[in-house]
């Protein structure tokens, strides 16, 4: 290669993998990881596995929200809250 961007090795790519998948890298550093994954099948396989894992976590842990009556109770307490600034 002539003057390309800095090339990173497998260790660097995997060190940054989560930051890459979390979109927390600068565009330059993200590009270096992307370039490495594009030509390194073993690292790409790890990346796919970890992507599946993170999607799974996100999909399977958010089902539960606050109970309906909790919201009602909170609103009632706000309405009658004596210590709120502006309340009485």
């Amino acid at each position: 290669m002539t003057e390309g961007p800095h090339e990173i090795d497998c260790r660097e790519a995997l060190d940054r993998l989560y930051e890459y998948l979390d979109a927390e890298l600068t565009p330059e550093l993200a590009q270096e990881v992307a370039d490495h994954l594009a030509k390194c099948a073993p690292c790409l396989a790890v990346s796919k596995f970890e992507t599946a894992y993170l999607r799974f976590l996100e999909a399977r842990t958010r089902a539960q929200g606050a109970p309906d009556d909790l919201k009602k109770r909170i609103l009632e307490r706000l309405l009658f809250d004596k210590d709120a600034p502006g309340g009485s």
Binding site: Q64, P67, L70, A84, P85, G86, S88
Partner: peptide, 27 residues
Amino acid sequence: VATPDDQRQAFEKEALPHLDTVFRVAL
């Protein structure tokens, strides 16, 4: 500037939509 009513409305509009998040993290 803000009456208690303003405050409650602002709070309901801006803070309450995050109730599910607060509850899940609390859990």
